[in-house]
Each structure stands twice: as C-alpha cells, then as structure tokens.
Amino acid sequence: MKLALVGDIGGTNARFALWRDEQLESVSVLATADFDTPEAAIEQYLDEQGVAPGSLGAVCLACAGPVSDAQFRFTNNHWRINRDGFCQRLQIDQLLLINDFSAMALGMTRLAEGEGLQVCPGESDASRPFVVIGAGTGLGVGTLLAQADGSWTALAGEGGHVDLPIGSAREAQLWQVLYRQLGHVRAEDVLSGNGLLVLYRAMCELDGVAPELLGPAEITTAALAGDATASAVLEQFCCWLGRAAGNNVLSLGARGGVYIAGGIVPRFAEFFCHSGFARCFSDKGCMSDYFTGIPVWLVTAQYPGLMGAGVALQQQNQG
C-alpha cells in the first residue's frame, strides 16, 4: 500500500502518524484548539515531515463521534469534515473515517508485550466479543469481534452516553446531586477528565466539604498523596467505570474480555488495580457469577488508536 496517513482525533488532541509497511512512523500530537480545521492541522504535520502534497495514497481518521458518509461533526471539539472538500484539499483519493473507539478496539489486536496490565484474571474466549472502554476527554466504548479469516470487526457505538449506572445507596445520593446540576446524567458526565471534577464537586456538596481542588490533575495528585476526599472521588470513579464496563459485558455477552483504554486511568494504574473496580465490575446480583473468568486488562500502550486506524485502513485495502 502507498504511503498513508492515520489520525486519532479526540476532543483535545489530534494524533497523526504516517502508515507504512503496517507500522506507525513519525507520531505527532497537536492540540485541536490550535487549528481551525483538521485539514490545516494535517497540512502542518505533513510539512513538518517533509511529505509533499499529493504524496499520500490514503488517509484514515479515527474520529470522536458518530461517523456519517459525507459530513462529520466532532462531538467534543469545533472541527468538521466534508469528505469531498477534504479529499480535494489534501489531494487524496481515499478517506476512511471510523469511530475513535472502533479504532481503539482494532488497536487491541496489535498490543505488544508489556503494553497492558491484567486487572482481573481469566481466560479469554476469542469466539465471543471483547469490550473496549476508556475515559479521556469523553468516555468511549467499542466492541471487537474476531472473524474466521483472521481479520477483526469493530462495532461503532456511543456507549459513553448511556445513563450512569447506580449500584448503591451512596451512588444514588451522588446521582441526585448530579441530576440537580446536570439534568440527564450520562456515564460520560462522570467518567471523563472533566467528569472527575464534576464528581469531586458533587461529592463535596453531598458531604458538606468546601471544594478546594480546581481540576482533574489536581484531584488525581491529591488522591495519590493520600487526601481523603480526593481518594474517595478517585475510588468512586473506578467503581463507576467497573459498573459501566460490566453492563457492556452483559449486553454483549463479552466473554472475550475487557480492555480499559483511554488517557486517564493509566495515570493512576496502581490505585486503579487496587480499587473497587473489579468488585463493581461483577456486582450484578443474580448474574454476578457470569463474570467469573472474564479477563480485564488496563492498556498502557501509547498510541493504540493510531495503530487501530492503520489496521482499519489495511483491512479495507486487503478486503
């Protein structure tokens, strides 16, 4: 396949790389806020790499949001894509747009040794679906299916926007605070970067504590340093992620296993592995035993979404 470009574009950052011989080259991360359009960001990236206009055979972009054929509107940033205008400006014949967590799911098929930590032990049933879920600017959820010919299918969805699951009286009280603030409470409203701050403020209100921390990074740092309120917030974050992941397993029959991806959880990997995630993951009443033996991994790979975009492009051109 001729030289291609792959991108993984979220709400805050756009990651780009060249795709050659089924490998990533020259990865660069750009802030979406610094560019009016994705075309402008890609043009700067290609100029920095010394790649002339018209040199690319194809582009695959993993995009946060529901992907359509002709027009795409990003969910968590100001960028838009018109397929025809994009291809004309960048002088390419093939543009493949896929959901960002479809790309993330496909990236799980190329994880190298040491790019994941096992959170829950078990034996993967590769004939069943895998769930990929991850918190970043938003909450992404993808489904991965192995095919008989050795290829993989990633099912697109918007699972981050489901209702926040409630599994205890304490969580019901927190939900009431969140509902007063937000109205409809989605999983993403808590299980995301900004959601960590939303959860912190809600917990402070519920417990009558004056909020002092101003952002998710401060909350994480304080929690790891032993601050009681911040630690409780981070613990609740892990528990709610467990409930959300478990709900997806039941809905899909995902005995292949679960990959925890995204940029947030790896920042407190040890805390996460010792948190209530595993307990809440399988806390499903009469169906709790269903989770016995389902493995869960925390993904620590640096650019799995980019790798997945390359896999998607490779599979399309070989199909």
Rank of each mutant, 00 (worst) to 15 (best):
A148L: 04
E113A: 14
P121Y: 11
E115P: 09
C120Q: 12
Y179L: 01
A105F: 07
P129W: 11
G142F: 10
G107E: 04
L164W: 03
L182R: 10
D207N: 13
D189P: 02
G167I: 02
S168G: 00
G140C: 11
H184V: 04
A202C: 08
D149M: 04
P211T: 10
H161G: 12
Q173H: 12
T137S: 15
M203T: 05
Q147I: 00
D100G: 10
L196P: 10
N194F: 00
L199V: 15
V209P: 03
R186C: 07
S192Y: 01
A146S: 15
G134V: 07
R180Q: 14
F130E: 02
M108P: 07
F130L: 04
L117F: 14
D163M: 04
L106R: 04
G138S: 11
R186A: 13
T153F: 11
Q118Y: 03
V162L: 11
D100V: 09
A135D: 06
Q176H: 06
L145S: 03
D189L: 00
G195H: 08
A187P: 05
G160P: 13
C120E: 12
E115A: 09
P165E: 01
G195L: 06
L178T: 02
V119L: 15
D189R: 02
L174K: 07
G142Q: 10
R128W: 06
E205P: 04
A202M: 05
G107K: 03
T109E: 14
L199R: 14
S102C: 14
E158G: 14
Q181R: 10
R186K: 15
R110A: 09
L206M: 15
E188R: 08
V131N: 02
A187F: 03
Y179Q: 13
V185Y: 00
G138T: 03
G142D: 13
V131Q: 02
C204I: 04
E158V: 06
L174Q: 08
L155N: 09
E188W: 05
D149T: 06
S151E: 12
R110W: 00
V190T: 05
D149Y: 06
L106K: 04
L106S: 07
T137V: 11
L196M: 14
T143Y: 14
I133P: 03
E212K: 13
E158I: 05
R186Q: 15
V198L: 06
P121C: 07
V185S: 02
L106H: 06
V177G: 00
W152Y: 15
P121S: 15
A148T: 10
I166S: 05
A126R: 13
L155C: 10
L197Q: 08
V162R: 11
L206I: 08
G160N: 12
R128I: 06
P129G: 09
L206R: 14
G157A: 06
D163C: 03
E188A: 14
G122V: 02
Q118V: 07
